[in-house]
Amino acid sequence: MMKVKNLIKVYNPETIPVHAVNGISFEIEKGDFVAIIGASGSGKSTLLHMLGLLDLPTKGEYTINNLNIVKLPEEEKTLYRLLQIGYVFQEYALVEEMTALGNVSIPLIMQGKSKKEAEKLAKEALDIVGLRGMYNRTEDQLSGGERQRVAIARAIVAKPKILFADEPCANLDSKTSEQVLEVFKKLNHELKLTIIMVTHEEWHIKYADRVIKLRDGVIEYDKRKNH
């Protein structure tokens, strides 16, 4: 499904080059739950940004279902992010003036769905992440965990093929983190959603099927867990 071949990201190539990702290659199958781990500065977030189409690689190939994602024009990348990809940020990253329902329904309205239909599907997504009855709460009326679950609902509402999560539990306590990771596990099992999660917490990897560890921009190991 997803193929990454010799992916390289160099910051400041003209002045003081920093090789954040230095020739990474791997393949990810549909339905995988992959945890990318590594120390700070190992290149895991940079890699996820490139995979999530938030940043461009300096070199290398990146295809999803044989489609060369890197070479897509900007408008098509936007469309790809809208239809095929879900992205959960480290911080809650909600539109602060919108309710939980508004935040989750906005990608659907962008897809052309009516407000009524968008809100119906958004409510379903919020129910999946355990926020039934909290539809009309704004960001300041939600706890950190609830906000992150709104962000997850927004990421999955359009039924994406892949969900990218960039340290989704970085600002959460361990109990809330566990709840969020359980949501990921449930989405992975029940919806067969491919999840690629960056984390620096060792205990998070128990939720993943496969662990890719980065060190200094290269893969240190790539292990698939045996169930």
């Binding site: 999530g52 938030l54 936007t78 809208l82 992205y87 990608p107």
Partner: peptide
Amino acid sequence: GILKAIGITE
């Protein structure tokens, strides 16, 4: 930036 990241057009 977040809106763009989730696929909202410019």
